[in-house]
């Protein structure tokens, strides 16, 4: 698969401080890519480098297989985490201005903006000033401005912050639609449930280093602990329990079930497989619940960062 963006050994220092240390990330075309990391890890610096707001000290970046340059600015739409609008300018005028800065023609910008304003049912805001809008309203306008010029690459830094659940959903659907229409999306967020829901690929940055990247499913596979949730109904609970304890590592159950009289998490040892476990359970009880414990993005995040 073609990489829309290929970040190769990028480093960035601010005086003594290293913001990014030899970071390489590939972002496949058409993907939704989660850029994760704790606060101050270097995500924003990386995003700013992609946006050519700051230049890397070393390393190179390819956009669509050519070295990132000033012409790519119009191919990128960026919604920063800290975002605002000119308070004294009318909404419509400043949306046009910001679109023009991205290289759009004035008339075209106006036309496209009208469409988006209608879609979001905010046409009557056109002549209002930002000071008359709520924070969420202003965020909608910022979202429109970010995507208006139909960029190949969309970068959202905490896009859902400031939105109520209804509007957050609206924005999420728009992002998915834009992705379906061909846009590659980079998400930078701390909201792991959005990552879980939206991202196909992730990269995890911690203390200026990339510590993890790839397809989310693959990563999860690598992070599996060979642990299974089991819940059974048995006449010989104590015997079964002893047997299991003898053979496997038993952990506290982390799930809810009904109609069982024995439940636990069972961690297999490296030479064991789940077939034997199922066989054993089947012989001595009625299986009500059997599920492999798949690490959540949240767990992967916390684990990786803590073990780093």
């Amino acid at each position: 698969m073609n990489n829309l963006l290929s970040i190769d050994s990028v480093s960035k220092h601010f005086g003594q401080f290293t913001a990014l240390n030899n970071v390489s990330i590939n972002i496949p075309e058409g993907s939704i890519f989660g850029l994760l990391g704790p606060n101050g890890a270097g995500k924003t610096t990386l995003i700013r480098i992609i946006n050519q707001i700051t230049a890397p000290d070393t390393g190179k970046i390819l956009f669509n297989n050519s070295a990132l340059n000033i012409n790519h600015i119009k191919e990128i739409g960026y919604l920063p985490e800290e975002r605002g609008l000119y308070p004294k300018m009318k909404i419509g005028e400043q949306a046009i201005y910001l679109a023009q800065l991205k290289g759009m023609d004035r008339q075209k910008a106006k036309l496209e903006l009208k469409k988006w304003f209608e879609k979001f049912e905010i046409s009557d805001w056109w002549n209002k000033k930002v000071t008359e809008l709520s924070k969420g309203m202003a965020q909608k306008v910022q979202f429109i401005v970010t995507v208006l010029h139909k960029p190949k690459l969309l970068i959202f830094d905490e896009p859902f912050s400031g939105f109520d659940p209804i509007n957050a959903n609206l924005i999420k659907d728009e992002i998915l639609q834009l992705n379906k229409d061909g846009a590659t999306v980079i998400f930078s967020t701390h909201r792991m449930e959005s990552v879980e829901e939206l991202c196909e690929y992730i990269a995890l940055i911690n203390k200026s280093n990339k510590i993890l990247d790839g397809k989310l499913d693959d990563i999860k596979r690598n992070f599996r602990t060979n642990t299974f949730e089991i819940a059974v109904s048995s006449n010989e609970v104590q015997t079964l329990k002893k047997q299991l304890e003898l053979k496997y590592d038993i952990l506290e159950p982390t799930f809810r079930t009904i109609g069982d009289n024995l439940k636990m998490n069972v961690k297999l040892k490296s030479n064991q497989n789940s077939d034997d476990l199922i066989k054993l359970l089947n012989e001595r009880s009625k299986i009500i619940h059997f599920k492999e414990v798949i690490p959540t993005a949240n767990e992967i995040f916390i684990n990786s960062v803590e073990n780093d």
Partner: peptide, 18 residues
């Protein structure tokens, strides 16, 4: 200062050189 405190600045500099 106004552009900075309104946080419009990052949107603008992603389109145009500071």
């Amino acid at each position: 200062i106004e552009e900075k405190t309104n946080r419009i600045i990052e949107i603008v500099v992603s389109s145009v050189k500071p």
